[in-house]
């Protein structure tokens, strides 16, 4: 009988990290598109680095940073009196970093499509850059925001390597669906592996359909 807990942890992880990621990705994408600053090209490439890095490599470096002796791990220990690795917070942070390009790229594309004259008009009408971001840029990027959220959610749902490195496989805590599938196969519990995989395939297909629908709609807008 398939245990639903890993699916629920995956969904919770994907939901929490997607919300936080959007809050981080929106100003980041806006800076990369609208602000000219030295090293913008380098920053852009850094945001995209998780796309090309093997998850185990990214996971390893995150483990070094977030471990008890790492910079982030020690800072976390001071405020929470506990470790960051092998916790839900730890895998959320790791998932956010790994999914960052999936959240930033659709937003960047949406921001780049905005007619610059609208931004100029907003400035002429007296709005600050921050007010322009909320009153002009975001309302005209709803499709990009939806795509960004969906891709980040889907990518985190299927997350494996980075989560395994940071969170291990603690049942009910850090054991997500993809790790559970791996363990089902390892222990030759193929029926459970097939059932859980089918759920992930279904989620992925619905995500792709939604993204395609949004893209078609934005092309016809």
């Amino acid at each position: 009988m398939m245990d639903n807990a890993p699916l629920l942890i995956s969904a919770k992880l994907a939901g929490v990290s997607t919300v936080l990621l959007l809050m981080l990705a929106m100003p980041l994408a806006a800076s990369l598109v609208f602000v000219r600053f030295p090293g913008r090209f380098l920053a852009d490439s850094l945001v995209n680095l998780p796309l090309v890095l093997p998850p185990t490599v990214l996971g390893f470096y995150l483990l070094v940073l977030m471990g008890p002796e790492g910079l982030v791990g020690r800072a976390w220990a001071r405020v929470s009196d506990g470790p960051l690795v092998f916790t839900f917070v730890g895998i959320t942070l790791a998932a956010m970093i790994h999914s960052l390009p999936f959240a930033v790229q659709p937003l960047k594309t949406a921001f780049q499509k905005i007619d610059p004259r609208l931004l100029e008009m907003s400035a002429v009408l007296g709005l600050t850059p921050t007010a322009t971001f909320f009153r002009v840029i975001l309302p005209n990027s709803l499709g990009g925001m939806a795509t960004s959220a969906i891709l980040a959610f889907a990518h985190t749902m299927g997350e494996f390597g980075v989560i395994l490195m940071i969170g291990g496989s603690i049942p009910g805590k850090t054991r997500v669906a993809s790790i559970a599938i791996y363990e089902y196969v390892e222990t030759m519990r193929y029926q459970e592996a097939v059932s859980m995989s089918l759920v992930l395939v279904g989620i992925s297909y619905v995500v792709l359909l939604t993204v395609n629908f949004l893209n078609i709609r934005s092309r016809h807008a």
Partner: peptide, 27 residues
């Protein structure tokens, strides 16, 4: 620009597409 308190009408495409006419005028 934002501190000059100007009215500026471009050749075209000066209205915000996510707003109604009234909300554009009241922007």
């Amino acid at each position: 620009a934002r501190k000059r308190k100007l009215g500026y009408v471009f050749q075209e495409h000066t209205l915000f597409p996510h707003l109604t006419v009234e909300k554009n005028v009241a922007f």
